[in-house]
């Protein structure tokens, strides 16, 4: 059964789209991620124009993050003060990201730019995750307990210090602001929430307690992706709400099953699985960039 997507201006199989939402939702529920870093490349693989895939995914992530955020909020796992700093810088970053996106689209380099960013970040995150979870699996076999994670780096010596009670931190506001800005830009250009960069950054760079990391990150993602959605719609007209709703429908159901299964599996094995998946998508994108295309010519409508 086909469904016509009014903004993408193509019709796609609704079962395929629901299935994609279901699978990515399942994985994101299981691993506790937003899933944008898988969904956006997969949408591009099945033929959604990259500008529509990125903007629509921003819209879908807003919706997916709301239910996750509310669950964390009820448990009190959100640092609103830290969240506010990340939101302000993230919104500025996503504004810059949408401008960059528009410029790259005008000069015809956006598709490859998105692919390169995904290859770099999926590659880096995949390798780090595989190495880290591999180490902890080995540690478990050898029966050693992991060492203390939180440490003080040079970033803790910067000026404009601010107290974040919930995070038990007294650090320079420049550090979370810088991270928020960077993730905001990436979020807008790549069509991701940015949790896969934000969460490690919060734990390893800021030194936030892991219990409040996910809730605070989701809080930031809601605002940043909402801002990206608004700006993409306003300047590029690339947000397809029909596509977003169909994906969301699949993802919501998938996430419920995913989170139930995820609760029963061990963290390290989960992370190894996710790392493999991330590296597979990365390899496919890298292959398309590095191997001579069948047809070096492409055709598109003049934009802007």
């Amino acid at each position: 059964m086909e469904i016509y997507l009014p903004i993408a201006e193509i019709s796609m199989n609704i079962v395929l789209l629901l299935g994609l939402g279901l699978v990515v939702g399942f994985l994101s529920g299981m691993f506790g991620t937003g899933g944008g870093f898988l969904m956006t490349p997969l949408l591009i693989f099945i033929g959604v124009p990259p500008p529509v895939a990125v903007a629509t995914e921003a819209n879908q992530i807003t919706a997916a993050s709301v239910s996750g955020f509310l669950a964390h909020w009820r448990r009190g796992n959100v640092d609103l003060r830290m969240g506010a700093v990340l939101v302000v810088s993230g919104v500025i970053g996503s504004g810059m990201g949408v401008l960059l996106f528009r410029k790259l689209r005008q000069i015809g380099q956006i598709d490859e730019f998105i692919s390169i960013l995904f290859v770099v970040f999926l590659g880096a995150v995949g390798i780090l995750m595989a190495a880290e979870s591999g180490r902890s699996i080995i540690r478990r076999w050898k029966g050693r307990s992991p060492g203390r994670m939180h440490a003080h780096y040079w970033v803790h010596g910067l000026p404009f210090k601010m107290r974040f009670r919930k995070s038990k931190l007294y650090i320079s506001v420049l550090v979370p602001a810088g991270i928020g800005l960077f993730v905001g830009v990436l979020s807008a250009v790549m069509g991701v929430g940015g949790g896969f960069i934000m969460i490690p950054a919060m734990i390893y760079i800021l030194g936030m307690p892991t219990s409040i990391v996910v809730g605070t990150s989701l809080f930031q993602i809601i605002f940043v992706t909402a801002n990206s959605t608004l700006l993409h719609a306003g300047t590029n007209q690339t947000v397809d709400i029909i596509l977003a709703l169909v994906l969301l429908l699949g993802a919501v159901v998938g996430a419920q099953f995913g989170s139930r299964l995820g609760a029963r599996l061990r963290g390290e094995e989960l992370r190894i699985l996710l790392a493999i998946l991330v590296l597979l998508v990365c390899a496919k994108l890298a292959h398309d960039l590095l191997v001579a295309p069948l047809d070096p010519y492409s055709l598109s409508l003049v934009f802007g």
Binding site: A63, S67, L230
Partner: peptide, 15 residues
């Protein structure tokens, strides 16, 4: 854009 965001917030909350 505003409608898309409101729709996303509502459907996320509903889900």
């Amino acid at each position: 854009g505003i409608l898309a965001v409101v729709l996303a917030l509502l459907s996320g909350w509903l889900a």
